[in-house]
Nucleic acid binder design. Structure first.
Lengths: 254, 254
DNA sequence: CAGTGGTCTAGACCACCCC
DNA sequence: GGGTGGTCTAGACCACTGT
């Protein structure tokens, strides 16, 4: 672990255990630098990452303050890999998975674009149903290039594709584009998510990229509307109205 | 403008104008350091912010590669302030605003918690309908503490509350917690968004914080399901399964 | 091995706030 | 003026990659 990450974690603990209570100023950066026997830029880096998480806020000439978010922090991790994430959170046994479809096909135009593939490069077409305590939680429809993820078996599908990619194939991820929107339930949704025709569905569409740069997954996860939601903290780091994209956006499909 | 921000913008331009084509390696950090006559850590900072935007990906021993996201980049800015953001994007004249409600009240329990107020501290209760080209776009229901945002007038509501807060009151924002979910349309939605009883609605619920630490807004923006969506890039910066929260999360409301 | 990015240092200067 | 965080430097060392 890096120094700045260690310090990040220590400060985070001190925030949660109220060593640094909500609303108060934490010690100055040079005091922390002396305490942890590091240089000030290292402290700064640790503080910055806690600002990005929404736990701290700095003001020049004043200090760095602990923010108090009374937002109920029931936020479950939602990494690219729902299965491993939920297993981690809820423990083994409560999460189950049903494979609805597992086949190979050639990508259509949309997939060719999203995964940057040629039409002759086969992809897996996977549909899985995730359950928590035997109640349906999400339908995940996943496409992955066979080229990048060889030898995918049903065994892997029941566990974690992401673990297989990281640990067996030793590939690294760089990040994911996501688009979150509401939709009417499809027939598949109504059947597997056990919802009626007028129950809205929350869909998280994403493209996951490898560090190498290649897209490794296109997927759509659909959730019953009263079952889950997507939470995030958006630190207003930059001038808001740049001429360029930022992380967070709403698009209007006129 | 900081040096690292200037360099960030220059590199960004070079990515968009294909000086650094998709998929290729950009020059090494020490080459860039010499070109821009800055130290390497400054280059690193610029590169890091482009990694956070999803434009670059670095690998030790190899270099820094331009990612190519064929995701259609129709992403409109969605800052906390929809009005100013959309005005910036679409130009003056296409955005209009109707005030459906503007009143004062004392906060209920939920609002007291979200805005960290006592029950005797009044809040504005504002409902506005946003239109693009005279077609309904979103219903925004906003609560703000009178204490923090004094002298709010209808005039300000038609323009930008955020501009008023930043420029007149000279307050700074630190960021916002958001929760995005799907919902059934309310009667208000059906009336003003012109949707039918089985059209889903996408709601973005947020609490916006000042740098000082105080929550300054609690709001819910509701959109017709086929009208807008929420997009973001999630860089997988940290180990995914830490014992602590990250920005992105799904919560299951069991 | 040489070359890449990742991290850290020690110190400096500046911008800003409050007294 | 005295104290805060924000930024930048010049150089160093390390971890990792590919040959």
């Amino acid at each position: 672990m890096n120094k700045h990450e260690e310090i990040t974690n220590i400060i985070k603990k001190r925030i949660y255990d109220k060593t640094y209570p909500s609303g108060t100023l934490i010690p100055q950066q040079d005091v922390l630098a002396r305490e942890f026997k590091v240089s000030r830029p290292t402290i700064k880096k640790a503080v910055d990452s806690l600002i990005a998480l929404g736990l701290l806020s700095s003001q020049r000439g004043i200090g760095t303050r602990v923010l108090s978010h009374d937002i109920s922090y029931k936020t479950n991790e939602y990494p690219a890999d729902i299965h491993k994430g939920l297993t981690y959170l809820l423990g083994e046994g409560r999460i189950t998975c049903i494979i609805i479809n597992f086949s190979l096909e050639f990508p259509d135009d949309h997939l060719q674009k999203a995964l940057q593939l040629s039409s002759s490069s086969p992809v897996y077409n996977i549909i899985r149903l995730r359950k928590i305590d035997n109640k349906p939680y999400a339908i995940e429809h996943t496409f992955m290039p066979v080229e990048l993820v060889p030898n995918l078996s049903e065994d892997v599908l029941y566990h974690s594709i992401y673990q297989y990619i990281q640990e067996t194939l030793e590939l690294e991820f760089s990040g994911a584009y996501r688009n979150i929107h509401a939709d009417k339930p499809s027939e598949l949704d109504q059947e597997y998510l056990e919802c009626s025709f007028d129950d809205p569905v929350l869909e998280v569409e994403q493209v996951v990229y490898l560090k190498k740069g290649a897209p490794v997954e296109y997927s759509r996860s659909r959730h019953k509307y009263n079952n889950s939601s997507y939470s995030l903290y958006d630190p207003f780091l930059r001038k808001q109205y740049n001429n360029e994209q930022r992380g967070v956006a709403i698009e209007s499909n006129e």
